[in-house]
Design a protein around this nucleic acid. Structure first.
Lengths: 201, 201
DNA sequence: CCATAAACCTACCGAACGGTAGGTAACAAA
DNA sequence: TTTGTTACCTACCGTTCGGTAGGTTTATGG
Protein backbone atom coordinates (compact mmCIF):
# COMPACT_ATOMS: atom_id res chain seq x y z
CA UNK A 1 0.00 0.00 0.00
CA UNK A 2 2.80 2.41 -0.69
CA UNK A 3 1.62 3.72 -4.08
CA UNK A 4 -1.67 5.58 -3.79
CA UNK A 5 -0.40 8.26 -1.43
CA UNK A 6 -1.53 11.37 -3.31
CA UNK A 7 -4.96 9.85 -3.85
CA UNK A 8 -5.46 9.45 -0.12
CA UNK A 9 -4.37 13.02 0.40
CA UNK A 10 -6.86 14.27 -2.16
CA UNK A 11 -9.63 12.22 -0.61
CA UNK A 12 -8.91 13.79 2.75
CA UNK A 13 -8.90 17.29 1.27
CA UNK A 14 -12.15 16.65 -0.55
CA UNK A 15 -13.88 15.35 2.55
CA UNK A 16 -12.48 18.20 4.63
CA UNK A 17 -13.74 20.71 2.07
CA UNK A 18 -17.30 19.40 2.33
CA UNK A 19 -17.26 19.18 6.11
CA UNK A 20 -15.62 22.53 6.80
CA UNK A 21 -17.93 24.23 4.31
CA UNK A 22 -21.08 22.79 5.84
CA UNK A 23 -20.09 22.74 9.48
CA UNK A 24 -17.37 25.32 9.94
CA UNK A 25 -13.96 24.73 11.39
CA UNK A 26 -14.57 24.31 15.10
CA UNK A 27 -17.75 22.30 14.74
CA UNK A 28 -16.18 19.81 12.36
CA UNK A 29 -14.33 16.92 13.97
CA UNK A 30 -11.34 15.13 12.54
CA UNK A 31 -13.26 11.91 13.00
CA UNK A 32 -16.02 13.03 10.65
CA UNK A 33 -13.49 13.91 7.98
CA UNK A 34 -11.64 10.61 8.09
CA UNK A 35 -14.93 8.71 8.14
CA UNK A 36 -16.07 10.51 4.99
CA UNK A 37 -12.71 10.03 3.33
CA UNK A 38 -12.75 6.37 4.33
CA UNK A 39 -9.29 6.56 5.84
CA UNK A 40 -8.04 6.31 9.38
CA UNK A 41 -7.13 9.16 11.64
CA UNK A 42 -3.38 8.53 11.54
CA UNK A 43 -3.59 8.69 7.74
CA UNK A 44 -4.77 12.26 8.08
CA UNK A 45 -2.05 13.06 10.58
CA UNK A 46 0.45 11.49 8.23
CA UNK A 47 -0.33 14.07 5.53
CA UNK A 48 -1.16 17.08 7.70
CA UNK A 49 0.50 18.31 10.85
CA UNK A 50 -2.78 18.83 12.66
CA UNK A 51 -6.36 19.90 12.13
CA UNK A 52 -5.35 23.53 11.66
CA UNK A 53 -2.75 22.59 9.07
CA UNK A 54 -5.34 20.74 7.05
CA UNK A 55 -7.63 23.73 7.15
CA UNK A 56 -4.93 26.18 6.17
CA UNK A 57 -3.88 24.06 3.22
CA UNK A 58 -7.45 24.21 2.00
CA UNK A 59 -7.93 27.95 2.46
CA UNK A 60 -4.57 29.03 1.07
CA UNK A 61 -5.28 27.10 -2.07
CA UNK A 62 -8.66 28.77 -2.43
CA UNK A 63 -7.32 32.30 -2.03
CA UNK A 64 -4.53 31.81 -4.50
CA UNK A 65 -6.86 30.33 -7.05
CA UNK A 66 -9.22 33.25 -6.69
CA UNK A 67 -6.52 35.84 -7.19
CA UNK A 68 -5.41 34.01 -10.33
CA UNK A 69 -8.96 33.97 -11.67
CA UNK A 70 -9.30 37.72 -11.12
CA UNK A 71 -5.98 38.56 -12.74
CA UNK A 72 -6.59 36.40 -15.78
CA UNK A 73 -10.03 37.90 -16.22
CA UNK A 74 -8.64 41.43 -16.02
CA UNK A 75 -6.15 40.58 -18.72
CA UNK A 76 -9.01 39.60 -21.03
CA UNK A 77 -10.80 42.96 -20.78
CA UNK A 78 -10.19 45.46 -23.60
CA UNK A 79 -11.12 48.67 -21.79
CA UNK A 80 -11.90 49.47 -18.17
CA UNK A 81 -15.55 48.53 -18.29
CA UNK A 82 -14.62 45.36 -20.10
CA UNK A 83 -12.14 44.51 -17.38
CA UNK A 84 -14.71 44.96 -14.65
CA UNK A 85 -17.26 42.88 -16.50
CA UNK A 86 -14.72 40.13 -17.13
CA UNK A 87 -13.64 40.11 -13.51
CA UNK A 88 -17.18 39.94 -12.22
CA UNK A 89 -18.30 37.31 -14.70
CA UNK A 90 -15.23 35.22 -13.93
CA UNK A 91 -15.80 35.51 -10.20
CA UNK A 92 -19.43 34.53 -10.60
CA UNK A 93 -18.49 31.56 -12.70
CA UNK A 94 -15.77 30.50 -10.32
CA UNK A 95 -17.98 30.72 -7.27
CA UNK A 96 -20.73 28.91 -9.09
CA UNK A 97 -18.41 25.98 -9.67
CA UNK A 98 -16.81 26.13 -6.22
CA UNK A 99 -19.63 26.81 -3.85
CA UNK A 100 -18.09 25.01 -0.93
CA UNK A 101 -14.72 26.67 -1.23
CA UNK A 102 -16.49 29.99 -1.49
CA UNK A 103 -18.45 29.27 1.62
CA UNK A 104 -15.23 28.59 3.51
CA UNK A 105 -13.52 31.70 2.18
CA UNK A 106 -16.41 33.90 3.29
CA UNK A 107 -16.78 32.19 6.63
CA UNK A 108 -13.11 32.58 7.49
CA UNK A 109 -13.04 36.19 6.33
CA UNK A 110 -15.90 37.15 8.61
CA UNK A 111 -15.35 34.61 11.35
CA UNK A 112 -14.44 35.49 14.89
CA UNK A 113 -10.69 35.61 15.50
CA UNK A 114 -10.63 32.57 17.74
CA UNK A 115 -12.95 30.44 15.68
CA UNK A 116 -10.47 29.67 12.99
CA UNK A 117 -6.77 28.83 13.27
CA UNK A 118 -4.82 32.07 13.46
CA UNK A 119 -3.14 32.84 10.18
CA UNK A 120 -2.31 36.38 9.17
CA UNK A 121 -2.25 35.35 5.54
CA UNK A 122 -6.04 35.53 5.26
CA UNK A 123 -6.20 39.27 5.66
CA UNK A 124 -3.13 39.79 3.51
CA UNK A 125 -4.61 37.87 0.65
CA UNK A 126 -7.95 39.61 0.85
CA UNK A 127 -6.22 42.97 0.83
CA UNK A 128 -4.04 41.93 -2.08
CA UNK A 129 -7.14 41.24 -4.12
CA UNK A 130 -8.55 44.62 -3.23
CA UNK A 131 -5.29 46.33 -4.07
CA UNK A 132 -5.31 44.71 -7.46
CA UNK A 133 -8.76 46.12 -8.19
CA UNK A 134 -7.61 49.48 -6.94
CA UNK A 135 -4.63 49.45 -9.26
CA UNK A 136 -6.96 48.91 -12.20
CA UNK A 137 -9.05 51.85 -11.06
CA UNK A 138 -6.01 54.08 -10.64
CA UNK A 139 -4.89 53.25 -14.13
CA UNK A 140 -8.34 53.97 -15.53
CA UNK A 141 -8.33 57.32 -13.75
CA UNK A 142 -4.89 58.14 -15.09
CA UNK A 143 -5.95 57.18 -18.60
CA UNK A 144 -9.04 59.35 -18.33
CA UNK A 145 -11.38 56.40 -18.66
CA UNK A 146 -12.70 57.09 -15.21
CA UNK A 147 -13.33 60.39 -13.47
CA UNK A 148 -11.35 61.29 -10.37
CA UNK A 149 -14.31 62.61 -8.42
CA UNK A 150 -13.88 59.71 -6.01
CA UNK A 151 -10.86 58.34 -4.27
CA UNK A 152 -9.57 55.11 -5.79
CA UNK A 153 -9.88 53.43 -2.44
CA UNK A 154 -13.56 54.31 -2.14
CA UNK A 155 -14.14 53.10 -5.67
CA UNK A 156 -12.36 49.82 -5.09
CA UNK A 157 -14.38 49.25 -1.93
CA UNK A 158 -17.57 50.17 -3.70
CA UNK A 159 -17.03 47.83 -6.61
CA UNK A 160 -15.70 44.96 -4.57
CA UNK A 161 -18.45 45.41 -2.02
CA UNK A 162 -21.18 45.17 -4.60
CA UNK A 163 -19.55 42.14 -6.15
CA UNK A 164 -19.25 40.29 -2.89
CA UNK A 165 -22.70 41.03 -1.63
CA UNK A 166 -24.02 39.44 -4.80
CA UNK A 167 -21.83 36.44 -4.22
CA UNK A 168 -22.93 36.24 -0.62
CA UNK A 169 -26.52 36.49 -1.73
CA UNK A 170 -25.87 33.70 -4.17
CA UNK A 171 -24.60 31.59 -1.28
CA UNK A 172 -27.72 32.26 0.74
CA UNK A 173 -30.14 32.07 -2.17
CA UNK A 174 -28.79 29.70 -4.80
CA UNK A 175 -31.64 30.37 -7.20
CA UNK A 176 -30.49 33.93 -7.80
CA UNK A 177 -28.57 33.57 -11.04
CA UNK A 178 -25.20 35.22 -11.35
CA UNK A 179 -24.30 35.24 -15.02
CA UNK A 180 -22.64 37.61 -17.46
CA UNK A 181 -25.77 39.71 -17.85
CA UNK A 182 -25.91 40.24 -14.11
CA UNK A 183 -22.22 41.17 -14.18
CA UNK A 184 -22.86 43.83 -16.83
CA UNK A 185 -25.79 45.29 -14.91
CA UNK A 186 -23.73 45.54 -11.75
CA UNK A 187 -20.78 47.16 -13.50
CA UNK A 188 -23.05 49.73 -15.13
CA UNK A 189 -24.70 50.51 -11.84
CA UNK A 190 -21.26 51.03 -10.37
CA UNK A 191 -20.00 53.18 -13.23
CA UNK A 192 -22.98 55.36 -13.97
CA UNK A 193 -24.80 55.38 -10.64
CA UNK A 194 -28.33 54.60 -9.60
CA UNK A 195 -29.57 57.54 -11.62
CA UNK A 196 -30.62 60.20 -9.13
CA UNK A 197 -32.63 63.13 -10.43
CA UNK A 198 -31.13 65.94 -8.43
CA UNK A 199 -33.70 67.45 -6.15
CA UNK A 200 -31.73 69.09 -3.38
CA UNK A 201 -29.22 71.95 -3.36
CA UNK B 1 -30.07 35.23 47.24
CA UNK B 2 -33.42 35.40 45.57
CA UNK B 3 -33.35 39.03 44.48
CA UNK B 4 -30.63 39.80 41.96
CA UNK B 5 -31.89 37.49 39.24
CA UNK B 6 -31.90 39.87 36.27
CA UNK B 7 -28.42 41.09 37.13
CA UNK B 8 -27.04 37.58 36.87
CA UNK B 9 -28.78 37.12 33.56
CA UNK B 10 -27.27 40.30 32.22
CA UNK B 11 -23.83 39.30 33.41
CA UNK B 12 -24.15 36.02 31.56
CA UNK B 13 -25.29 37.77 28.38
CA UNK B 14 -22.46 40.25 28.59
CA UNK B 15 -19.85 37.55 29.05
CA UNK B 16 -21.41 35.46 26.28
CA UNK B 17 -21.34 38.44 23.94
CA UNK B 18 -17.62 38.94 24.43
CA UNK B 19 -16.79 35.26 24.11
CA UNK B 20 -18.97 34.49 21.12
CA UNK B 21 -17.73 37.60 19.34
CA UNK B 22 -14.08 36.76 19.85
CA UNK B 23 -14.23 33.00 19.60
CA UNK B 24 -17.31 32.12 17.61
CA UNK B 25 -20.09 29.83 18.69
CA UNK B 26 -18.60 26.36 18.44
CA UNK B 27 -15.19 27.33 19.76
CA UNK B 28 -16.61 29.00 22.86
CA UNK B 29 -17.34 26.75 25.81
CA UNK B 30 -20.07 27.24 28.36
CA UNK B 31 -17.39 26.96 31.03
CA UNK B 32 -15.54 30.01 29.69
CA UNK B 33 -18.72 32.06 29.75
CA UNK B 34 -19.67 31.21 33.31
CA UNK B 35 -16.11 31.78 34.47
CA UNK B 36 -16.12 35.26 32.93
CA UNK B 37 -19.55 36.03 34.34
CA UNK B 38 -18.44 34.72 37.74
CA UNK B 39 -21.45 32.47 38.04
CA UNK B 40 -21.85 28.72 38.06
CA UNK B 41 -22.87 26.58 35.14
CA UNK B 42 -26.30 25.72 36.52
CA UNK B 43 -26.95 29.45 36.86
CA UNK B 44 -26.60 29.71 33.10
CA UNK B 45 -28.83 26.72 32.54
CA UNK B 46 -31.33 28.25 34.87
CA UNK B 47 -31.77 31.27 32.61
CA UNK B 48 -31.23 29.66 29.21
CA UNK B 49 -32.41 26.33 27.92
CA UNK B 50 -29.02 25.42 26.52
CA UNK B 51 -25.99 26.88 24.82
CA UNK B 52 -27.89 27.40 21.59
CA UNK B 53 -30.70 29.20 23.42
CA UNK B 54 -28.24 31.63 24.96
CA UNK B 55 -26.74 32.35 21.56
CA UNK B 56 -30.09 32.87 19.89
CA UNK B 57 -31.22 35.27 22.57
CA UNK B 58 -28.12 37.32 21.86
CA UNK B 59 -28.45 37.33 18.08
CA UNK B 60 -32.20 37.96 17.92
CA UNK B 61 -31.73 40.99 20.08
CA UNK B 62 -29.01 42.31 17.80
CA UNK B 63 -31.03 41.91 14.61
CA UNK B 64 -34.10 43.59 16.01
CA UNK B 65 -32.07 46.49 17.32
CA UNK B 66 -30.43 46.96 13.95
CA UNK B 67 -33.73 47.05 12.09
CA UNK B 68 -35.00 49.65 14.53
CA UNK B 69 -31.91 51.77 14.01
CA UNK B 70 -32.37 51.67 10.23
CA UNK B 71 -36.06 52.51 10.36
CA UNK B 72 -35.62 55.41 12.75
CA UNK B 73 -32.80 56.79 10.63
CA UNK B 74 -34.92 56.57 7.48
CA UNK B 75 -37.66 58.53 9.21
CA UNK B 76 -35.22 61.35 9.86
CA UNK B 77 -34.27 61.82 6.20
CA UNK B 78 -36.03 64.61 4.30
CA UNK B 79 -35.52 63.35 0.74
CA UNK B 80 -34.21 60.11 -0.70
CA UNK B 81 -30.56 61.02 -0.56
CA UNK B 82 -31.06 62.27 2.97
CA UNK B 83 -32.64 58.97 3.95
CA UNK B 84 -29.73 57.00 2.59
CA UNK B 85 -27.21 59.22 4.32
CA UNK B 86 -29.09 58.98 7.61
CA UNK B 87 -29.32 55.21 7.34
CA UNK B 88 -25.66 54.80 6.57
CA UNK B 89 -24.51 57.22 9.22
CA UNK B 90 -26.75 55.56 11.80
CA UNK B 91 -25.49 52.12 10.87
CA UNK B 92 -21.89 53.29 11.10
CA UNK B 93 -22.53 54.82 14.48
CA UNK B 94 -24.35 51.76 15.74
CA UNK B 95 -21.66 49.39 14.62
CA UNK B 96 -19.01 51.62 16.05
CA UNK B 97 -20.64 51.37 19.45
CA UNK B 98 -21.47 47.67 19.18
CA UNK B 99 -18.44 46.11 17.59
CA UNK B 100 -18.87 42.76 19.26
CA UNK B 101 -22.53 42.39 18.41
CA UNK B 102 -21.68 43.36 14.86
CA UNK B 103 -19.00 40.76 14.70
CA UNK B 104 -21.48 38.11 15.78
CA UNK B 105 -24.11 39.27 13.32
CA UNK B 106 -21.67 39.06 10.42
CA UNK B 107 -20.20 35.79 11.52
CA UNK B 108 -23.60 34.12 11.80
CA UNK B 109 -24.78 35.54 8.50
CA UNK B 110 -21.82 34.10 6.63
CA UNK B 111 -21.16 31.10 8.82
CA UNK B 112 -21.51 27.53 7.68
CA UNK B 113 -24.96 26.07 8.27
CA UNK B 114 -23.81 23.63 10.91
CA UNK B 115 -21.51 25.99 12.71
CA UNK B 116 -24.21 27.92 14.41
CA UNK B 117 -27.45 26.66 15.96
CA UNK B 118 -30.04 26.28 13.23
CA UNK B 119 -32.50 29.14 13.31
CA UNK B 120 -34.34 30.24 10.21
CA UNK B 121 -34.94 33.64 11.74
CA UNK B 122 -31.48 34.86 10.76
CA UNK B 123 -32.14 34.81 7.05
CA UNK B 124 -35.63 36.21 7.52
CA UNK B 125 -34.36 39.15 9.47
CA UNK B 126 -31.57 39.90 7.04
CA UNK B 127 -34.01 39.83 4.18
CA UNK B 128 -36.46 42.02 6.05
CA UNK B 129 -33.78 44.68 6.34
CA UNK B 130 -33.06 44.45 2.64
CA UNK B 131 -36.75 44.63 1.79
CA UNK B 132 -37.07 47.80 3.82
CA UNK B 133 -34.27 49.44 1.83
CA UNK B 134 -35.91 48.24 -1.35
CA UNK B 135 -39.23 49.78 -0.36
CA UNK B 136 -37.50 53.14 0.08
CA UNK B 137 -35.97 52.77 -3.37
CA UNK B 138 -39.30 51.85 -4.94
CA UNK B 139 -40.91 54.88 -3.42
CA UNK B 140 -38.10 57.13 -4.65
CA UNK B 141 -38.54 55.69 -8.12
CA UNK B 142 -42.27 56.24 -8.01
CA UNK B 143 -41.79 59.81 -6.81
CA UNK B 144 -39.32 60.46 -9.60
CA UNK B 145 -36.47 61.09 -7.22
CA UNK B 146 -34.66 58.10 -8.65
CA UNK B 147 -34.49 56.86 -12.20
CA UNK B 148 -35.91 53.46 -13.08
CA UNK B 149 -33.00 52.41 -15.28
CA UNK B 150 -32.22 49.73 -12.73
CA UNK B 151 -34.37 47.19 -10.99
CA UNK B 152 -35.15 48.06 -7.38
CA UNK B 153 -33.73 44.76 -6.26
CA UNK B 154 -30.41 45.44 -7.96
CA UNK B 155 -30.32 48.86 -6.41
CA UNK B 156 -31.09 47.59 -2.95
CA UNK B 157 -28.36 44.98 -3.27
CA UNK B 158 -25.93 47.54 -4.60
CA UNK B 159 -26.49 50.01 -1.82
CA UNK B 160 -26.64 47.47 0.96
CA UNK B 161 -23.59 45.70 -0.42
CA UNK B 162 -21.50 48.81 -0.39
CA UNK B 163 -22.64 49.68 3.10
CA UNK B 164 -21.81 46.28 4.50
CA UNK B 165 -18.45 45.96 2.87
CA UNK B 166 -17.49 49.19 4.57
CA UNK B 167 -18.72 47.85 7.86
CA UNK B 168 -16.88 44.59 7.32
CA UNK B 169 -13.75 46.54 6.46
CA UNK B 170 -14.24 48.50 9.64
CA UNK B 171 -14.32 45.23 11.56
CA UNK B 172 -11.09 44.07 9.97
CA UNK B 173 -9.37 47.45 10.05
CA UNK B 174 -10.66 49.45 13.00
CA UNK B 175 -8.62 52.52 12.11
CA UNK B 176 -10.67 53.14 8.97
CA UNK B 177 -13.11 55.80 10.18
CA UNK B 178 -16.76 55.44 9.31
CA UNK B 179 -18.40 58.76 9.99
CA UNK B 180 -21.04 60.94 8.40
CA UNK B 181 -18.67 62.26 5.75
CA UNK B 182 -17.88 58.73 4.70
CA UNK B 183 -21.61 58.00 4.60
CA UNK B 184 -22.20 60.93 2.25
CA UNK B 185 -19.38 59.90 -0.05
CA UNK B 186 -20.71 56.38 -0.30
CA UNK B 187 -24.25 57.51 -0.98
CA UNK B 188 -23.09 59.85 -3.73
CA UNK B 189 -21.00 57.13 -5.31
CA UNK B 190 -24.07 54.94 -5.29
CA UNK B 191 -26.38 57.58 -6.69
CA UNK B 192 -24.24 59.19 -9.36
CA UNK B 193 -21.83 56.41 -10.22
CA UNK B 194 -18.08 56.19 -10.36
CA UNK B 195 -18.03 58.68 -13.21
CA UNK B 196 -17.11 56.74 -16.32
CA UNK B 197 -16.17 58.70 -19.41
CA UNK B 198 -17.81 56.62 -22.06
CA UNK B 199 -15.24 55.18 -24.39
CA UNK B 200 -16.81 52.17 -26.01
CA UNK B 201 -19.81 51.72 -28.27
C1' DC C 1 16.51 -12.44 0.23
C1' DC C 2 16.81 -8.95 3.17
C1' DA C 3 16.73 -3.99 4.91
C1' DT C 4 14.61 0.27 4.69
C1' DA C 5 11.15 3.48 4.11
C1' DA C 6 6.56 4.88 2.84
C1' DA C 7 1.88 4.48 3.92
C1' DC C 8 -0.98 3.40 6.60
C1' DC C 9 -3.74 0.46 10.59
C1' DT C 10 -6.08 -0.68 15.50
C1' DA C 11 -6.43 0.79 19.84
C1' DC C 12 -6.15 4.00 22.99
C1' DC C 13 -4.89 8.41 25.83
C1' DG C 14 -5.92 12.56 28.83
C1' DA C 15 -8.57 16.51 28.54
C1' DA C 16 -12.44 19.07 27.66
C1' DC C 17 -17.08 19.12 26.27
C1' DG C 18 -22.37 20.14 27.16
C1' DG C 19 -25.42 19.10 30.47
C1' DT C 20 -27.52 17.44 35.06
C1' DA C 21 -28.52 15.34 39.75
C1' DG C 22 -29.20 16.75 44.04
C1' DG C 23 -28.56 19.88 47.62
C1' DT C 24 -28.98 24.76 49.79
C1' DA C 25 -29.63 29.62 51.09
C1' DA C 26 -32.88 33.44 50.87
C1' DC C 27 -37.14 35.48 50.78
C1' DA C 28 -42.66 35.29 50.35
C1' DA C 29 -46.92 33.67 51.43
C1' DA C 30 -49.87 31.13 54.61
C1' DT D 1 -43.42 28.36 61.95
C1' DT D 2 -44.02 25.89 58.01
C1' DT D 3 -44.15 25.53 53.12
C1' DG D 4 -43.06 26.85 48.37
C1' DT D 5 -40.50 29.16 45.07
C1' DT D 6 -36.59 31.45 43.26
C1' DA D 7 -31.98 31.36 42.45
C1' DC D 8 -28.49 29.37 42.52
C1' DC D 9 -24.33 25.88 44.29
C1' DT D 10 -20.82 21.62 44.21
C1' DA D 11 -19.86 17.62 42.12
C1' DC D 12 -20.17 14.77 38.60
C1' DC D 13 -22.12 12.26 34.39
C1' DG D 14 -21.35 10.08 29.67
C1' DT D 15 -19.51 11.49 25.38
C1' DT D 16 -16.43 13.27 22.22
C1' DC D 17 -12.49 15.75 21.29
C1' DG D 18 -7.59 16.20 19.03
C1' DG D 19 -3.81 13.52 18.95
C1' DT D 20 -0.54 9.38 19.42
C1' DA D 21 1.95 4.90 20.53
C1' DG D 22 3.15 1.01 18.35
C1' DG D 23 2.45 -2.48 15.12
C1' DT D 24 1.63 -4.04 9.99
C1' DT D 25 1.56 -4.13 5.11
C1' DT D 26 3.52 -2.96 0.57
C1' DA D 27 6.88 -1.48 -2.72
C1' DT D 28 11.84 -0.75 -3.62
C1' DG D 29 16.85 -0.70 -3.60
C1' DG D 30 20.90 -3.47 -2.71
Amino acid sequence: MAQHGPRTRRQILRAALKRFANGGYAATSVQQIVDDAKVSKPALYYYFRDKAGLFQALVSEAHDERLQVVQQAAARGRDFRGQLVEILAALFDYFHQNRELTRIAFATAFAAPGEVPPDLLYLDRCQRNLEFIRSLIKRAQADGELGDRFDSRDLAYGFYGQAHLYIAAHLLMPDYRLNRRAAERIVDLFLTGAGAKKKRG
